[in-house]
Design a protein around this nucleic acid. Structure first.
Length: 575
RNA sequence: CGAGGUGUAGCGCAGUUUGGUAGCGCGUUUGGUUCGGGACCAAAAGGUCGCAGGUUCAAAUCCUGUCACCUCGACCA
């Protein structure tokens, strides 16, 4: 490819709409152009990167016996009614009618389609397991797209579905996919992607992992323990705290006029949040029934864990009069409000605590949880925090960071096979629901994520396995016939040798040439100029500045090819 | 969906308060001089000022409506 004829302008100034590094470089570098909110067209460089990522994914999916298929983008609503998701999913599922007035949907994921493809006469047990996957466009009408390709409405995704006849078989295959994912991310040049335990939603007991690239622009909060390697999405992270008794005191009602928040009350009573009981009120979405959560005053509620615990959708409450809930003074002692009451385990074993007295302007001091309350069981709905105790190794070294979810793997169980009638024939002639797993990778998001962690002040530094080209050849002073001739020859030779090369044959100044090359981020840079030719050489350098050397013109093609091969194998040779 | 912001040339912006018929930088085109980190000189092209309606002799500017985009929040199979 010659740069002189390549579409996509590269420019110096950062467009006002761009917020994050990957978005800035991919817009400024002529990789893509926004069409609408969260919808982009890709120019050739981005298309080539994405295609290479897809091919790496293909190889690894094929290596775990995947069968590539292709589902439709448009599906009839009836298929989604079978699983119940036509009604349970909100407006992020794009719905429309075809000319016949039939309800249709745009695929945001393809569990339904995969079951539809696979079902029919129940197959014998011996036909299992198998896995199908596709790499295809998804559309999710996100309430708020942002950050270039990190969070979009239309995107390319690899989604895979595996089918099993036993939980043990699913788990075995799940482990193979987990490993395949590690290989995929390593081969894409981001071996630092880590798997974290993730929230499995309300389906209970199912295991799932998210593959996270840790970076500050990430939208997910990741909990890690440096001592033992424990990793979890905040949504799924246990919160462990240690309480020490400070000495019993009588339960005493005290006047706290106008002191409503934890901070106010603690300041007023000369105490600390850890020695107080916080009440947070939620409502069930469907019934508006109140849920009062009591937890230690210094902690916050993890709404995902709470949602899973109560088993339905919830939202922060707007407390109205007449339910026995005294806003600002809610406490567990003599609480008579019309609400479901939960006690977080952060309160377990506490004594001498401050809590609301369920009366305006009154709190209790000296609350001893064991002595003063009859609590049948504690739940775990608090958000963990930096310095909290690791639920695995017990060391108080929990760290909090941000991550981008570039992939996930999920043990689905029988949710879709059961509702949509996908069964297999057992050896004794009976029928049973097929057990499923699903496995996703956001291709465009992975591309942007790599850019987030592989760049310098001038542009992306693409790992050679996914770089749009392997070699960026600059003919510096292309107006000089000897330069043009040497560069043309090298360009031809490299292509003959199977090297992917972008050739900057434009008669532009060195500054322009280098800036554009930096924005394209091609890992190997070759410069042919009057200077280098004067030495009978070309200049061979790495985009990441890890090497730079003269190579004789005669052996240039050979040496460049060898360098490319070395760089490729350095990344591709993963366990 | 809630709050805030912005729409003027491919990109970045000024002009809007106080109405007078659109400008700057980058980029682009042409010619010339330069040439290893976004060169210089000269000339040129490019905009129904988001859209619709209204007020006015006159609207980028004032009024009404609408759409789009951005940020924060809510949401996220």
């Amino acid at each position: 490819m010659k740069l002189s004829s390549m579409l996509g302008d590269r420019f110096r100034e950062t467009p006002a709409d761009c917020q994050i590094i990957s978005q800035i470089y991919m817009i400024r570098g002529g990789y893509m152009k926004q069409v609408a909110n969260g919808i982009y067209s890709l120019y050739t460089p981005a298309r080539r990167i994405v295609r290479k990522i897809e091919n790496i994914i293909r190889e690894e999916m094929d290596a775990v016996d995947g069968q590539e298929v292709l589902f439709p983008v448009v599906m009839p609503a009836d298929l989604w009614r079978e699983s119940g998701r036509y009604d349970s999913i909100g407006s992020e599922l794009a719905r429309f009618k075809d000319r016949g007035g039939n309800d249709m949907v745009l695929g945001m994921t393809h569990e339904e389609a995969s079951v539809q493809l696979v079902r029919g006469t129940p197959k014998p047990e011996s036909a299992f397991p198998f896995m199908i996957y596709q790499i295809q466009t998804k559309f999710r009408d996100e309430p708020r797209a942002r950050g270039g390709l990190i969070r979009v409405r239309e995107f390319t995704m690899k989604d895979a579905y595996s089918f099993h006849t036993s939980q043990a078989d699913l788990e075995e295959y799940y482990a193979r996919c987990y490993h395949a994912y590690e290989r995929i991310f390593a081969r894409c040049g981001v071996p630092e992607v880590v798997a974290v335990k993730s929230d499995s939603g309300m389906m209970g007991g199912n295991i799932s992992h998210e593959f996270m690239l840790l970076t500050d622009i990430g939208e997910d909060t990741i909990v890690t323990c440096p001592a033992c390697g424990y990793r979890s999405n905040m949504e799924a992270a246990d919160c462990v705290v240690k309480n020490e008794k400070v000495g019993s005191a009588p339960l005493t009602k005290v006047a706290t006029p106008g002191q409503k928040t934890i901070e106010e009350v603690c300041t007023f009573l000369n105490s600390v949040p850890e020695r107080s009981v916080k009440a947070v009120v939620y409502q069930e979405n469907l019934t508006d029934k109140y849920i009062v959560v009591f937890l230690r005053g210094d902690l916050e509620v993890n709404e995902t864990k709470l949602r899973n615990f109560v088993g339905c959708e919830i939202h922060p409450a707007e407390v109205e009069e007449g339910h026995g809930i005294v806003k600002g003074f809610i406490g567990p002692v003599n609480f008579t409000g019309d609400a479901r009451v939960l006690f977080d385990k952060s309160l377990d074993g506490t004594d001498n605590m401050i809590c609301g007295a369920n009366e305006i302007d009154c709190h209790y001091t000296g609350l001893d949880i064991e002595r003063d309350l009859k609590i049948e069981s504690f739940c775990d709905v608090a958000k963990t925090y930096a310095g909290a105790i690791c639920p695995v190794c017990g060391k108080p070294e929990i760290q909090i960071s941000r991550g981008v979810e570039v992939g996930n793997i999920f043990q689905l169980g029988t949710k879709y096979s059961h509702s949509m009638g996908l069964q297999y024939q057992t050896k004794d002639g009976g029928f049973a629901d097929v057990i499923m797993g699903c496995y996703g990778i956001g291709v465009g998001r992975l591309c942007a994520s790599v850019c987030e962690v592989r760049h310098d002040d001038y542009g992306p530094i693409w790992p050679i396995t996914i770089a749009p080209w392997q070699v960026h050849l600059c003919a510096m002073r292309a107006d000089k016939p000897e330069v043009k001739e040497a560069a043309d020859q090298l360009y031809d030779a490299l292509q003959q040798a199977g090297v992917e090369v972008i050739y900057d044959d434009r008669p532009v100044s060195a500054g322009v040439m280098f800036s554009d090359a930096d924005l394209l981020g091609v890992p190997v840079r070759v410069i042919v100029s009057p200077k280098t030719l004067g030495r009978g050489a070309i200049d061979l350098a790495a985009r990441d500045k890890s090497f730079r050397r003269d190579v004789p013109v005669e052996s240039a093609c050979e040496e460049i090819s060898a360098t490319v091969r070395e760089m490729l194998s350095a990344i591709n040779n993963v366990e």
